[in-house]
Each structure stands twice: as structure tokens, then as C-alpha cells.
């Protein structure tokens, strides 16, 4: 094959998060409206590589993807070896704001999946004027747990293998094998206890059932897209959440599961391009 480069640029951003110095890996491509993409629990920014390389998106959007601390190429903070990683609503919310500030982004769009889909609901409730629009993929204010997270980090079960095996069924059976396995590889290669630590936010700390009714979509439009095969954040979970938010726009995506952007990029593209176009068009008419 002919060698070729992708237009993605990756760099390390040094900044303070939750009062501690961090070295964050950030990839970006494109120009225009800043679009911050938030990866799922236990994975990393590689999930958005097809968004970063889609010219139809990058001609209008500056796509920004960072690996959260402890994930991908972002190291844990100094002293991590003596603590248990646990993501919280407060830390996660502030992390998004701090990254946007550190990069001097003006009114970015944030698109988050799974835990990222959960945190955009909190951003919508708490900081609507900071964002141009928010997109929740596999997003709901709460989901029913379906396994004991103690299985994710213990010496007698391989953490990477069990994390991947648990989430493998959250993808649609129609998704291409190459994309499903690529998605699972990120789970297989995550650090010990990191997926479990993310789920502390998802299951324990981040119950937003009493928060989402405060969301005012006239201040910041909210789009929610959920795959029909996602049994973790089900279409019913998303619809139930959206019913409490006046003006939230919901799309249930056929033949997709919990990882739309990475499990079947071309299928997801058909759903996300119109949303991004709508945000861009509305932006053009803003004050």
C-alpha cells in the first residue's frame, strides 16, 4: 500500500486538573467551530479517529480529542500508585472546562459518549452559556447497573479481557468485525482499575435524575443520539431523560450500539453529520 499521513496532530498539554499537574494527550484536526469529543469509560480518544479524519466535519469544525488522565497516552498524576482512581461529577465537569480554557476555546461544542454523554448533561445544567451546543451519545441521566464492577479489577480475572468481554455485546451485531475489535482493543489495553474508576462516576456519583430538569435548551441546544443495540444506556433511558428536558432532540440510531463513532463509523456518520450541520447553521445566525 502507498504510505500516507492522516491530518491529525497530537500534542501534550500541561495543565492543572483538580489541583494537580497533568500532562494530557490531545489530538486535533480541522478548523472552525471547536468540537471537543469525550471518550467512553475505560477507553481513550482513539474512538474518535474517524471523526478527526472526516473532511466533511473538519472543513467546518476544529475537532479536539483528549485522553482523560489515566487513559490512553495521558499518564496518571504523580503519586497515582498510592491511590484508587475514581472519577467524580465535579472532577469530570471541571476537567472539560479546564481543557477548554487552557486551549482558549470560544463557545465549543462538546460531544461525549457514555460517561461523556452523561457529563454533557451536567454541563448543560450547570454551564450552558459556556457551550455552543452539546451532544450526548448513549446519554442518559441514570442507567440500571448490570454487573458487579468488582470483576473489573482483581488478581484472578484479567482486567483488560473482562472489560472488553463485558462491553463487546453492547455493539450492534451488524457492525464490521474490524471496527468492533478495534473498539475492544482500547478496553483490553486500559490500565488496571481505570474502567472501574470511571464507573464510579457513572454508577455512584453521577446520578443526574434530579439535575436534568434544570437544563434550558434555549441557552444551549442539546442533542441526544443512542444506538438501538445499546443495552447499557438503552434507547428507553435516553427517551426517559429527554422527556424531562424541553427542547432536547433525540435520535435513536439503527444498527448501532454503545460505541457508534468507533464500532461503525460510516453508519454513525449518517446520523451525526446532520446534527453538526444544524449546529453550524444555527451558529451562523448567532448574534
Amino acid at each position: 500500500m502507498t504510505p500516507r499521513w492522516e491530518p491529525i496532530v497530537g500534542r501534550y498539554l500541561h495543565l492543572e486538573l483538580s489541583g494537580r499537574p497533568h500532562r494530557l494527550y490531545v489530538e486535533e484536526a480541522g478548523q472552525g467551530i471547536p468540537l471537543i469529543c469525550l471518550h467512553t469509560a475505560g477507553a481513550d480518544g482513539r474512538q474518535f479517529r474517524h471523526i478527526l479524519t472526516d473532511a466533511a466535519i473538519t472543513q467546518h469544525y476544529r475537532v479536539i480529542v483528549f485522553d482523560m488522565p489515566w487513559h490512553g497516552k495521558s499518564l496518571p498524576p504523580e503519586g497515582f500508585e498510592r491511590e484508587e482512581y475514581q472519577l467524580t461529577t465535579q472532577k469530570y465537569t471541571q476537567m472539560v472546562l479546564d481543557v477548554a480554557d487552557a486551549m482558549a476555546l470560544e463557545a465549543p461544542v462538546v460531544m461525549g459518549c457514555s460517561i461523556g454523554g452523561r457529563i454533557v448533561l451536567n454541563l448543560a445544567a450547570e454551564h450552558p452559556t459556556r457551550f455552543r451546543a452539546l451532544i450526548g451519545l448513549e446519554s442518559a441521566d441514570y442507567q440500571q447497573p448490570w454487573y458487579d464492577t468488582e470483576w473489573l479489577h482483581r488478581p484472578d480475572v484479567h482486567g483488560g479481557e473482562v472489560c472488553a468481554a463485558l462491553v463487546s455485546g453492547m455493539m450492534a451485531p451488524h457492525s464490521p468485525a474490524v471496527s468492533r475489535h478495534e473498539t475492544l482493543w482500547m478496553y483490553k489495553s486500559g490500565g488496571p482499575g481505570v474502567f472501574k474508576g470511571d464507573l464510579h462516576f457513572y454508577r455512584i456519583d453521577g446520578d443526574l435524575r434530579d439535575v436534568v430538569a434544570r437544563i434550558d435548551t434555549t441557552k444551549c441546544p442539546l442533542y441526544m443520539l443512542t444506538g438501538e443495540y445499546d443495552f447499557s444506556c438503552t434507547p428507553e433511558d435516553t427517551l426517559r431523560t429527554a422527556a424531562k428536558i424541553k427542547g432536547a432532540e433525540v435520535t435513536i440510531m439503527a444498527k448501532l450500539g454503545h460505541f457508534p463513532m468507533s464500532e461503525n463509523p460510516s453508519q454513525f456518520r449518517a446520523y451525526i453529520l446532520p446534527v453538526l450541520e444544524k449546529i453550524r447553521t444555527a451558529s451562523g445566525t448567532r448574534g
Binding site: Q144, W146, Y147, L166, S168, G169, M170, A172, P173, H174, E228, Y229, F231
Partner: peptide, 16 residues
């Protein structure tokens, strides 16, 4: 061969 949502995975079935 291509189960409908909810029947496509053992864990989906245990959750339900």
C-alpha cells in the same frame, strides 16, 4: 444470525 436488540448478547439478556 442477527438478533434483535436485547437478544443479541448474553449479558443483555441477564440484565433484562
Amino acid at each position: 444470525p442477527f438478533p434483535v436488540p436485547g437478544f443479541h448478547d448474553l449479558m443483555a439478556m441477564t440484565k433484562a
